[in-house]
Design a protein around this nucleic acid. Sequence first.
RNA 1: UGGGGAUUCGCCAAGCGGUAAGGCAACGGACUUUGACUCCGUCAUUCACAGGUUCAAAUCCUGUAUCCCCAG
Length: 364
Amino acid sequence: MLDKNKVIVGMSGGVDSTVAAYQLKKMGYEVIGVNMRLWQDDFLEEEHFMKDGGCCSLSSVEDARRVCEQIGIPFYALDFKGVFKETVVDYFIDAYKNGETPNPCIACNKYVKFEALLEKAHQLGAYYVATGHYAKISYDENLARYIVEKASAIEKDQTYALYNLTQEQLQHILMPLAEFTSKDEVRQIAANFDVQMSQKSDSQEICFVPDQDYVGFLKRNGNFKIEKGDFFDTDGNVLGKHEGIVNYTIGQRKGLGITFGKPMYVVDIDPEYNRVVLGENETVFKKELWAKDVNFIQMASIEGPYRCEAKIRYSAKPAPCTIECVDDLVHVIFDEPQRAVTPGQAVVFYQGSYLVGGGTILRK
RNA sequence: UGGGGAUUCGCCAAGCGGUAAGGCAACGGACUUUGACUCCGUCAUUCACAGGUUCAAAUCCUGUAUCCCCAG
């Protein structure tokens, strides 16, 4: 029998998850803090892993332990390295191997935070798992579904990385930061009981690649050869040599190591022939895309053409579009061409502030 | 080894006697819970080299070196 008053909070040791735990405790929940051990890279200095962060931070166990003590809740450090490697790291490596650009945060949310950790919560008798994500989850009586809405702190909104969650998962998730209107407000609360923590900076890198060098990470952990190949223009002419497709993502300009007198961008990555196609800015816009592994939040599925907005990357403005399911894929046609539609990244659908669903962008 | 033309930042390129534009790249920073994009900033005391003429030369003159084209 799960206790609806009991909640497991995933705590990175950062500001957000700390305040999330604090708020829940204040609301009267029985709160247990859990720090997930996700990854260990002997190659990197420990200090790299000491930084704070949002949902993805590995941060330090010690910070998490300390604040739990201050808040007055039990704390456990649990090992999730196995599931993290299988569902996040391996996926991350495979995506690059296939010429795609992965979004590990989305995979981590789906499989680790809201699956593995949720299971653990249930084992401990807790009905809920909570995180420091910025998003609103609620139950809609009319739809008879759990729905997700953008956070009040709109500039920190993380719904983009949550489109993948199932009804079953949403039913058991609490996100106490939903109603805060800014990160500053969250920091203020943290400052009440831990000033040092409240000033930690936001994380912005891939949590298991804190030195930013994801190519180095792939070399150490990837188990495949990164082979040099040719740059092509959009007409099929060879322009020069590239350092291996994993070094590039659609829309990229910097680091091509080649100059044309005009800015040039990556337009396409062809893993089969190990090619990277370059073009001018105008060539990197696309009006439509196909996505797989589609999940809908607001409804079980959609029938026929459906008008909504879509984001093709975390920090994009939602763009008006028409979507339609075809078999198990979704076809997205934008009103205006979008820049750098990137295979492997998520396309996420919205109706105003509500999260409709999303999927993984395909190459063709 | 006859004739003609070139040689300015890693790349392209302005300048044509008055005290080195710009673009690309690179680097640094801002932004960013993925990868990117974007934005801001920094980037030739020096113009292939050596002399000379001028108050003053990358700009004119004389050699030297290298490259390209046309002739052999």
